[in-house]
Simulated assay, not measured.
Amino acid sequence: MSGRLSVVVPALGEAAVIGAALRALAPLRAAGEEVIVVDGGSADGTAEAARGLADRVLVCRPPGRARQMNAGAAVARGTILWFLHADTLPAPGAAEAIRAAVAAGAGWGRFDVRLSGAHPLLRVVERAMNLRSRLTGIATGDQGIFVRRDWFEAAGGFPDIPLMEDIALSRALRRRGRPACLAGPLVTSSRRWEAHGVVRTILLMWRLRLAYFLGADPARLARRYARP
Score class of each variant (00 low, 15 high):
S116N: 04
R77E: 15
A76L: 07
P162I: 06
G156I: 06
W108T: 04
T136N: 03
L28R: 13
V38M: 06
F111S: 04
E96G: 07
G3R: 07
A86M: 03
S189M: 11
A47P: 09
R227S: 10
A24D: 10
R209Y: 11
R127N: 01
L169D: 09
G64P: 14
G40Y: 07
A211L: 14
H119S: 00
M129S: 00
D160E: 15
V57H: 08
H119K: 01
A154E: 15
V35C: 04
P185T: 13
M129I: 10
E48D: 14
I98S: 02
L12R: 02
L214S: 10
L131I: 06
V9G: 02
A216T: 07
L214K: 12
L182D: 03
R220Y: 07
A11I: 01
R149Y: 10
E165C: 12
A118Q: 05
R224V: 12
A66T: 15
A49Y: 12
L169P: 14
Y212W: 14
P179D: 05
V113L: 09
G215I: 07
A216K: 14
V198Y: 04
R4K: 13
G3P: 00
S190V: 01
V199I: 14
L121D: 09
A15S: 04
M164S: 15
A128P: 00
